[in-house]
């Protein structure tokens, strides 16, 4: 039989007084899931505002969205954002199992690999370098982090309501989630459609946000 030694409940005026105060504050509290959901809504809104101020969706989006290469950008970024937000919900709670989210992340990785493989198979090798470098790599590296700032701030604020065990990692995860949200927006503008470009520059841009998130996490969580 395992049990605590309850005789240890001694005359602990400070602790007893603390319990007294805490018990009377039973009412006001925030469900962490709700806090995170609010962060997602406000973060996506902030990202949308920055996106609209800085740039526009490409004019031919409605037509090209049906092409496999453009669709691919969303098939990668949308599940990545969803998986990372799901993961943040677990990271913010002490002792919560990570659940199915790492599997979804693995799936996103697999899709990315398959997409790159198909592209390599279909595009002649002489054009690989051109597809990889694209036309606007520098914009991609600049705009994705810019759009990601809003969501990142929201996620860090939300995680402060939680209790992540490893602040740096939690911040980095928040960075990847924000980067993924930003990438969804940027993908509607970006004219570089090769999976090679997406796998290289989108990933690099998201890594930049993740590094910012890591330091924000160390500092603020």
């Amino acid at each position: 039989m395992m049990s605590d030694d309850d005789s240890s409940r001694g005359p602990t005026s400070g602790t007893d007084r603390l319990i007294e105060i805490l018990a009377k504050d039973a009412g006001a509290w925030h469900r962490f899931g709700t806090v995170l959901l609010k962060a997602v809504v406000i973060g996506v809104f902030a990202a949308a505002v920055v996106f609209i101020v800085l740039m526009n969706p490409r004019p031919d989006l409605e037509q090209v969205i049906q092409t496999a290469r453009v669709l691919f950008k969303f098939i990668v970024t949308v599940p990545l954002a969803v998986a990372m937000i799901g993961l943040l919900d677990r990271i913010g709670r002490p002792a919560a199992p990570l659940g199915p989210w790492p599997w979804l992340l693995g799936g996103v990785g697999a899709i990315l690999v398959v997409g790159v493989g198909v592209e390599l198979a279909m595009v002649p090798s002489s054009e690989w370098a051109a597809s990889l470098i694209g036309t606007y790599a520098r914009y991609c590296l600049m705009f994705i982090p810019l759009i990601a700032i809003g969501p990142l701030v929201c996620f860090i604020v939300a995680l402060r309501q939680g209790m992540p065990t490893n602040p740096g990692l939690a911040g980095a995860a928040a960075g990847v989630a924000s980067g993924a949200i930003a990438a969804i927006f940027y993908a509607t503008h970006c004219p570089d459609d090769s999976p090679l470009f997406v796998a290289t520059w989108y990933t690099l841009a998201t890594c930049i946000v993740a590094i910012c998130g890591y330091f924000a996490g160390r500092r603020f969580l």
Partner: peptide, 11 residues
Amino acid sequence: LLAVHLKRGTW
């Protein structure tokens, strides 16, 4: 105890 209280929304 304070953390339990302030973070009880994470349970």
